[in-house]
């Protein structure tokens, strides 16, 4: 039975799709069987982030309407064969896929994989409801910006009304240079204020800004590896860049 994790945020543009794609690739690189589901119907981008858009033939609507089986609609990643994607629909037919149908499709894909990661749409309306209904765990993504934190907090509260067992926080696009200078709130403090368990902190990256994928080396790749370790229960270590690990940085961050 796979672990079914929904990646949600409330606010758009904080990096849900990027996180889903990179976390999926990181886990698949370790040999885990991962299926990603794009639940952002109408404004889907997960196939683009994973560079799979040219190979998409069928989508979730074809599965929901019974034209094809869920397994047949999956698109396999070129680099990591263990990583598969159930693409979403480009046109706005969101109402045609009800939450119960979406949960049934998720249950079908649950067999024989280790992780099922659902990329939820922004907002807390029907699309969010559909994505969350099918999940047992949730990752809330936020950036250190106040508006994103506020929306993420509302999303976390809303999640408590669903059958989601554990909710964790990932702070994306952290500017560690600003954190070290005392000009930005550290991810640990954001998690403390939101009363959520911090699963990971991901640094701001120009590479991801351009390409969406973090690659196999570099700061972002290390941050995603730490996040994957925490999700797999192998470690509790939250990523911090080498410059932020010094004794002075530690005390500076402790004082906020």
């Amino acid at each position: 039975m796979a672990r079914t994790i929904v990646v949600a945020s409330g606010k758009g543009g904080v990096g849900k799709t990027t996180l889903t794609a990179n976390l999926g690739r990181t886990l698949a690189a370790r040999g885990r069987k991962v299926t990603l589901i794009d639940a952002d119907i109408g404004l889907n981008n997960l196939d683009v982030a994973l560079d799979m858009e040219d190979r998409v033939v069928y989508d979730i609507l074809d599965v929901a309407e019974g034209r094809i089986s869920a397994a047949e609609a999956l698109v396999q990643d070129k680099d990591f064969p263990e990583l598969k994607l159930l693409p979403s629909v480009k046109c706005g037919v969101s109402d045609k896929i009800k939450a119960a149908r979406f949960a049934a499709i998720t249950a079908l894909l649950n067999m024989g994989v280790d992780y099922l990661i659902i990329d939820a749409p922004a907002g807390v309306e029907s699309g969010f409801h559909r994505a969350v209904c099918a999940a047992k765990e949730a990752i809330i993504v936020t950036t250190p910006h106040l508006s994103a934190v506020k929306d993420a907090d509302r999303t976390a509260r809303l999640l408590s009304t669903y059958d989601v067992r554990s909710v964790g926080l990932v702070v994306n696009r952290v500017r560690y240079d600003l954190v070290d200078r005392g000009e930005a709130v550290p991810p640990e403090k954001i998690a403390q204020l939101m009363r959520l368990r911090l699963l990971g902190a991901l640094p701001e990256s120009d590479l991801i800004g351009i390409n969406a994928l973090c690659g196999e080396r570099g700061e972002s790749a290390r941050a995603y590896a730490c996040l994957a370790d925490v999700i797999e229960g192998r470690s509790d270590r939250i990523y911090s860049p080498p410059d932020s690990r010094g004794i002075f940085s530690f005390f500076r961050r402790r004082t906020y």
Partner: peptide, 10 residues
Amino acid sequence: MKAAELTMKM
């Protein structure tokens, strides 16, 4: 704005 102020605001 300093982190302490931002934290307070948050």
